[in-house]
């Protein structure tokens, strides 16, 4: 049976894993390669490394980090942050990533999705969407808006429509972050996730708001998510993929339990 994926996300700044709220007050949370290997060992189905430096000078550091992290990692490995061109993506793939996550660059130039897919396959292109409900709208979920710049700037597009366009242009997966839920630890936005998941045939990864095991069970059932991203709940050994998955299995969620 196809299982629901638990994806560990590492925010990386200047070659180190960092933890912070809204990218301020960053706390060092270790070496990316060590952390990624630990997550894979503890049962994470996939690793996402998100570069939050995203400066020109930081690119070489990032590629070194990707290379070091990929070396001993034998589960799918996705890298995001600062990928603006097919050439940027190619460098990340050559360093050992299996997938790239693109966000604002895809909004600025949607042809980038098919350009990367043509060389590396659709399965290698994850389109990340930062979403907020539109409280003014008749249907705040179906009319939820796409945002950029950490959720501060709306781009004037509806989330569901952009997800559909991304799929048509050859995206392999959608990584949907609810900016309303992000950082709250009050649960994923299940209604929004379900609206996107029902609109596309490609997998949807839910992100933002995870605080408890029940939140994950909820986003898989009610939110129809195919995978869920877990970031801060894993840091500093608070909760491991293994314990999260064991608890999910107990409530009937199909998960891969590594031996």
């Amino acid at each position: 049976m196809l299982t629901k994926r638990i994806i560990a996300c590492l925010d990386v700044h200047a070659g180190r894993v960092v933890k912070g709220v809204q990218f301020v007050d960053l706390v060092d949370a270790g070496d990316p390669a060590t952390q990624a290997a630990r997550h894979a060992r503890e049962g994470a189905d996939e690793i996402v490394l998100l570069d939050i430096t995203a400066t020109h000078e930081g690119r070489q550091t990032l590629l070194d980090t990707v290379r070091r992290t990929a070396r001993e990692l034998f589960v799918p490995f996705c890298v995001g942050g600062g990928i603006k061109s097919a050439r940027d993506a190619e460098q990340v793939f050559e360093a050992g990533a299996d997938k790239v996550s693109i966000n604002s660059a895809a909004l600025a130039d949607p042809a980038l999705i098919s350009a990367i897919g043509a060389s590396f396959g659709a399965q290698a292109v994850v389109v990340a969407i930062d979403a907020r409900r539109d409280p003014q709208a008749a249907d705040p979920v179906r009319e939820a808006q796409v945002f950029v710049h950490g959720g501060r700037k709306p781009v004037g597009r509806r989330v569901v429509e952009w997800a559909r366009e991304a799929e048509q242009r050859g995206a392999g997966e959608i990584l949907l972050t609810s900016m309303d839920a992000d950082g709250t630890r009050a649960g994923f936005d299940c209604d929004l996730t379900a609206a996107v998941s029902e609109a596309v045939s490609i997998p949807v990864i839910a992100s933002g708001g995870a605080g408890t095991v029940a939140h994950f069970a909820d986003v898989f059932a009610r939110g129809r998510a195919d995978a869920a991203l877990a970031a801060s709940i894993f840091h500093f050994g608070v909760s491991t993929s293994r314990s999260l998955k064991e608890e999910l299995a107990q409530v009937g969620v199909p998960v891969r339990l590594p031996c």
Binding site: M1, L2, T3, K4, R5, D45, A122, Q123, G172, E173, S201, I202, P203, D226, A227, R256
Partner: peptide
Amino acid sequence: EKVPHVGWNS
């Protein structure tokens, strides 16, 4: 069910 089939299966 969705197509493509993506993820860990037995």
